[in-house]
Design a protein around this nucleic acid. Structure first.
Length: 540
RNA sequence: CGCGGGAUAGAGCAGUCAGGCAGCUCGCCAGGCCCAUAACCUGGAGGUCGGGGGUUCAAAUCCCCCUCCCGCAACCA
């Protein structure tokens, strides 16, 4: 793959990021890091949705009054959070930026010209307390839940509507033609059912008087563009649409929109329809369409985390800021836990107990201890150096029935690649530990290999063989480090340095070169090992 | 009959499409080992595969019925 363009949704900034936001963003960051290692040009974008009415409500709740300053602060807070969590995004978009306003208005005009945007009357129940329309689920006894003393008023308003229903057949065709467009399968069934039976035109503007924020409708000051129509276009904006057509051609379409399961409808139904519509008249999008490069390759909806079995909820105050966990576990352990714990696409639960279990078992006992024991033995038996051995003999493990050395690593790496490219980071990690595999070269098998060959006994009568065993182990650890790198960048670096290599030099090599068996130099000093995942801190 | 997902050991899951000894990780118990972060390895206990019926030499798996849980949808601004 030459390029890889991956996106997070743009988040509302009504609070700081919690573990759910971090999960989505970690997935994208891991994929971005993986594709960078593969040698692809990568565009990983994230950002914040600043045109939502919810932001204004949040600002008022926070006791502030200057929306521009509030948004600046929140954008800074989100950026800082991602920096603290080791997220290496390439683009951070704020939807109040001029380039986004330009992109949205250009897109709007294109869709308008096709006739897919039309004026109609919206009828809704308006709460004068909230100064907002309310959905049925937000009301009780004819009043909104927040203002039970102020009955809702039926209000009619002339708005612009988008002819979503006109794209029904084309959407259904898209779902049946592309298995990967809407993932996972259960969600694709859900969206298909929605489109088949319930698809209706949607309102895409609001009167400026009832909406305090938002991008003005071109040539009509009385209307502002409403939420999703604006928000989805952020993906085009970050790819240069509206500011640099040639850049857009390089990146579009997105390879992966990673989204929460709650917003898959907008990404899998509204978004492609919007693109088809604007592509009828917008020259750039038309060209992309003719080249078959208009529709995003994959929208993958992940599940939600509960906290100790309970839904994350602001009112319950049970949201977890992942940064609070860093002092006890370290950043990489948190990234590992979130990527490993739930099958991608399904729901899962976050709990300190599970995090602790995985930290101790997977990271400290299996991974950390393996590297530590391998280095310790090499240092002890080979004067603090990596063993100098015949690479061919150290590549295979003729006496081991449970561990295949070089050949096994190749197999592991190709299976790992398969899972990563299907967005199954959880399965890639499971494979790396090789859970459930009888004959594989994962971490658990490497530990079995040590027991089976007993280098600590063998050293008394066959030092050469011990060297071969230990070299194979250390070399395997070097491979593990690079396989872990997308999920656990700091750990990968620590492992490579523990093996006496210079991370900065190694990380510039191609993936192919890194995966060559024998990349670990022989007769090289090994520094005294330090536990990668110390346990004392973990249990604090 | 609105649509879909799910129910497998104490926990979390795989296996179901293509029927063939019920498996993995964690936890628990016992043993081994001594290189290692009281880490590692081996063995064991623990399951009427949600319930009932059917097809079959054989069903977690295929067919029918039922129960429970969870999403989505129900002119949601």
């Amino acid at each position: 793959m030459e390029k890889f363009f991956v996106t997070t949704p743009i988040y509302y900034v009504n609070d700081k990021p919690h573990i759910g936001h971090a999960y989505t963003t970690f997935v994208c960051d891991t994929l971005a890091r993986y594709y960078r290692m593969l040698g692809a040009r990568v565009l990983f974008s994230t950002g914040v949705d600043e045109n939502s009415q919810k932001n204004i409500e949040a600002m008022i709740a926070a006791g502030e009054s200057d929306i521009a300053r509030y948004l600046d602060n929140m954008a800074g807070l989100w950026k800082q959070s991602w920096d603290d969590l080791g997220i290496r995004y390439d683009a951070f978009i704020r939807t109040t930026e001029q380039r986004h306003v330009n992109a949205v208005q250009r897109f709007w005009r294109a869709a308008m010209e096709t006739g897919d945007i039309y004026k109609s009357v919206y009828k809704g129940m308006y709460c004068t307390g909230c100064e907002a329309f309310k959905t049925e689920s937000e009301t009780e006894n004819g009043a909104c839940v927040l203002h039970p003393n102020k009955p809702l008023k039926p209000i009619e308003e002339e708005n612009y509507f988008f002819k979503l229903s006109a794209y029904r057949d084309r959407l259904l065709e898209l779902y049946s033609q592309s298995r990967e467009f809407a993932m996972p399968e259960a969600r694709r069934n859900e969206i298909r059912n929605y489109v088949e039976n319930h698809l209706a035109d949607i309102s895409v503007s609001r009167s400026s008087s009832s909406l305090e924020s938002g991008i003005p409708v071109p040539d009509n000051d009385s209307q502002r563009i409403y939420v999703w129509f604006d928000a989805l276009i952020n993906y085009l904006t970050v790819a240069g649409y509206g500011s640099d057509d040639r850049e857009t051609e390089q990146w579009w379409p997105a390879d992966a929109h990673i989204v929460g399961k709650d917003i898959i409808k907008f990404h899998c139904a509204l978004w492609p329809a919007m693109l088809w519509s604007a592509a009828k008249t917008d020259p750039l999008l038309k060209k992309m369409s003719e080249e078959g490069k208009l529709i995003p390759r994959t929208v993958f909806a992940h599940g939600f985390f509960t906290i100790d079995g309970i839904k994350i909820s602001k009112s319950l105050g049970n949201a977890v800021d992942p940064r609070d966990l860093i002092p006890a576990y370290g950043l990489d352990a948190i990234r590992y836990f979130l990527m490993r714990e739930i099958p991608f696409g399904e729901d899962g639960d976050f709990s300190r107990k599970r995090l602790e279990e995985r930290y101790v078992s997977d990271l400290a006992n299996t991974l950390g201890n393996l590297l530590h024991r391998a280095i310790s033995m090499s240092r002890r038996y080979f004067n603090g150096m990596t063993p100098n051995v015949d690479l061919v003999r150290a590549g295979a493990s003729p006496n081991a029935s449970v561990w295949d050395g070089a050949a096994g690593l190749r197999d592991l790496e190709s299976r790992y690649d398969g899972f990563m490219q299907e967005f199954r980071i959880d399965l890639a990690l499971e494979r790396l530990w090789a859970a459930g595999e009888i004959k594989a070269s994962g971490l658990l098998q490497a530990n079995k290999f040590v027991e089976e060959t007993k280098p600590f006994q063998l050293v008394k009568d066959d030092a050469m063989k011990v060297g071969e065993i230990l070299y194979a182990l250390l070399e395997a650890c070097r491979h593990y480090a690079w396989l872990l790198a997308p999920v656990m960048p700091e750990t990968a670096k620590a492992m490579i340095e523990s093996l006496g290599q210079k991370f900065d030099i190694e990380s510039k090599k191609s993936l192919e070169e890194l995966r060559q068996w024998g990349g670990l130099p022989m007769d090289t000093p090994l520094p005294e090992p330090k536990p990668l995942f110390p346990k004392r801190e973990a249990t604090s």
